[in-house]
């Protein structure tokens, strides 16, 4: 990318064919080609998941597999909803992902603000210490966390899992948002406080809007990681009514085999779909470029 940009700007001798307009066209075609490549590379396996989910199993197991389904069907989806508490799992996952995201965004932005504006030495140590959360394989952490929750009577409860998720996703939010707050000049909140706002009001009304893209990145991260989390969910929850989506879908991957390829793929689509919608929802804000312009003023 950058090389293309660089080449474009090198002063060229005015040769006959390479007019600036042609050059611009060539550059744009290359960009479009790259864009297409990136999209294809990203979408193909998901496309494959989707296509397999609308094929009856008879086609998946044909000797000569065709790419396009000969008899597209929604039977796999129907089966999925019939045999599992899929909708219940979906609800649990949605509750967990939404509350975790809200909690992480709220606590991380406050914490990151404190860390970026007050130079306590403790904050610096704490900031680095938080990364320990990501340094040890979760498999090792499962037992201690289980016993903590057991002591406070929060095993087999969504609330307990919410606390675990929030605690383990927070470090990312703290780090990312701190880098955003660091880039926001101090003068902005001083101006607000001169106008009579309290410190907290200044933070909420002036600083936060500046960091919206950072908050969105944090949300996307928290939401999707929580949505996919499988290990803790499958160990800390043990009522059928409290299963989450990813733990539920994983139960379709038997040791022996996949009982129905189509149903598994349908589950894959249904797990991904809410995330796609969630992202589409947030992306509008990202594109609108919130806060981007106001830094100019």
């Amino acid at each position: 990318m950058t090389q293309i940009a660089a080449r474009r700007e090198r002063p060229l001798p005015p040769s006959g064919i390479l007019t600036p307009r042609l050059l611009k066209r060539v550059r744009r075609s290359i960009l479009y080609a790259l864009l297409l490549l990136a999209v294809f590379w990203s979408v193909f396996p998901l496309f494959w998941v989707f296509i397999s989910s609308i094929k009856p199993d008879t086609e998946t197991y044909a000797f000569e597999q065709t790419v396009w389904p000969q008899n597209p069907t929604i039977a796999n989806y129907v089966t999925l909803f019939r045999i599992t508490d899929f909708t219940l799992w979906l609800r649990n996952s949605a509750i967990l992902a939404v509350t975790t995201t809200l909690a992480v965004v709220a606590l991380a932005s406050m914490g990151a603000y404190a860390m970026s504006r007050f130079k306590f030495r403790f904050f610096e140590y704490f900031g680095r210490l938080t990364l320990l959360a990501y340094m040890m394989p979760p498999i090792i952490l499962v037992v201690p966390i289980f016993f903590i929750l057991f002591k406070i009577k929060l095993t087999n409860s969504l609330l307990g899992l919410l606390l675990v998720y929030t605690g383990t996703r927070l470090p990312f939010g703290l780090w990312l948002l701190r880098s955003y707050f660091q880039g926001i000049p101090l003068e902005l909140e001083e101006a607000a406080m001169v106008d009579g706002a309290t410190r907290f009001q200044a933070f909420r009304k002036v600083i936060l809007p500046q960091a919206v893209p950072g908050i969105i990145s944090t949300s996307i991260f928290t939401f999707s990681v929580t949505w996919h989390e499988f290990l803790f969910a499958s160990i800390l929850l043990f009522s059928g009514s409290k299963q989450t989506l990813s733990a539920g879908v994983a139960s379709f991957l038997s040791e022996d085999w996949i009982y129905s390829w189509g149903v598994l793929m349908a589950a894959g689509v249904m797990v991904s779909l809410p995330l796609v919608l969630f992202y589409a929802f947030l992306q509008r804000y990202l594109i609108a470029g919130w806060g981007g312009g106001s830094l100019k003023g």
């Binding site: 289980f146 499958s234 043990f238 059928g240 379709f252 038997s254």
Partner: peptide, 25 residues
């Protein structure tokens, strides 16, 4: 009867930790 679909990969571990803590399985 509260039916729980468990993935075979996590089952042993899940059961064991819960059993060791005395949770109702």
């Amino acid at each position: 009867i509260d039916i729980v679909l468990a993935s075979p990969a996590s089952r042993g571990r899940r059961l064991l930790i819960a059993l060791a803590s005395g949770a109702d399985l």
